[in-house]
């Protein structure tokens, strides 16, 4: 039992938090710009490298240097939106999907060019876990990840329901034409969508890098579960995407627990497949997701 908590449940929450933070951005972009952002994983990668570079230069714990990763991710997304996505907005959105597919490659090759293809760690050496009640062993990172996701979930909820900008974002996501007729500044809403999405992606990327290590494929490898999470949560429903991310993270990690017999239920090498099958099942049975999002 305690083994289940230590080795499966707590890591599952961390993975879920990473997916959730990425999926929120994907879901918001889905809702407001109406396309599947294939470069979102690579925005996470850039965020992770931004933080890493700061760690090299400034002797502070990585999580305190997150603003550097966030800044890099924001600059990168605003730049590609301006240069590559915006000129395609008049066309069918599938062209923007293709463009973002290419942007994924651009981000990844830039990461390889500037930081190399090797694996990097933020802090060398093994971190000792904290022990509670003599039995529960949790690494500091896992506690931090859970705290971060709680704080962000609450902030996001208040932002979306109480602030003008948050309500405008929901309005644009709901009925873009009516939002324009109501005089909302759609461009500003789009800009903030990128800023928020990129910030959360950078946090997710840094957490993922802390959890394992930083490498150019870091984010791309997480893209599929994040898509699954945003569909699960219902497209255009950021809070749903948060929940969806947690569910996918839990499902992936817990699928490796020996529920039946001695071996893992699903071999750990097929963890990503779990997300895929959840996604396929959703597309077949409930494409609007669990929280009644809409269809693209």
């Amino acid at each position: 039992m305690i083994e289940f908590v230590n080795f499966y449940l707590i890591p599952a929450f961390t993975l879920g938090a990473i997916y959730a933070l990425g999926a929120v951005g994907i879901s918001m972009i889905f809702g407001i710009l109406r396309f599947a952002h294939f470069a979102h994983g690579d925005v996470m990668t850039l965020g992770a490298y931004g933080t890493l570079t700061a760690v090299w230069l400034i002797p502070l714990p990585p999580l305190l240097l997150l603003p550097f990763g966030i800044a890099l991710a924001i600059v990168a997304t605003l730049a590609v939106d301006r240069m590559f996505y915006r000129p395609l907005r008049k066309l069918a959105t599938i062209y923007t999907v293709i463009s973002s597919f290419g942007v994924a490659l651009i981000f990844r090759s830039l990461a390889q060019l500037f930081w190399g293809a090797q694996n990097e760690v933020y802090v060398p050496g093994v971190q000792r876990p904290l022990v509670f009640f003599d039995t529960i062993r949790v690494s500091a990172l896992h506690i931090e990840a859970i705290l971060i996701i709680i704080v962000i979930a609450l902030t996001l909820h208040v932002f979306l329901t109480r602030s003008r900008l948050g309500r405008s974002m929901r309005a644009v996501s709901d009925e873009p034409e009516l939002a324009a007729v109501s005089g909302l500044d759609t461009d500003r809403v789009i800009r903030w969508t990128w800023i928020i999405g990129a910030s959360l992606a950078a946090i997710a990327g840094t957490l993922a890098g802390l959890d394992t290590d930083v490498h150019p494929n870091l984010g791309w490898n997480l893209l599929l579960p994040m898509f699954a999470a945003s569909i699960l949560g219902g497209i255009g429903k950021p809070m749903g995407a948060l929940a969806g991310g947690m569910v996918i993270g839990l499902a992936e990690e817990l699928s490796a627990y020996p529920w039946l017999g001695d071996g893992p239920l699903i071999s750990p090498s097929y963890k990503t497949a779990v997300a895929f099958f959840i996604m396929v099942a959703l597309l077949i049975f409930k494409p609007q997701g669990l929280f009644k999002g809409r269809l693209l």
Partner: peptide, 8 residues
């Protein structure tokens, strides 16, 4: 579904 889903 819309083409984006097929892409994913």
């Amino acid at each position: 579904l819309k083409s984006d889903y097929l892409a994913m």
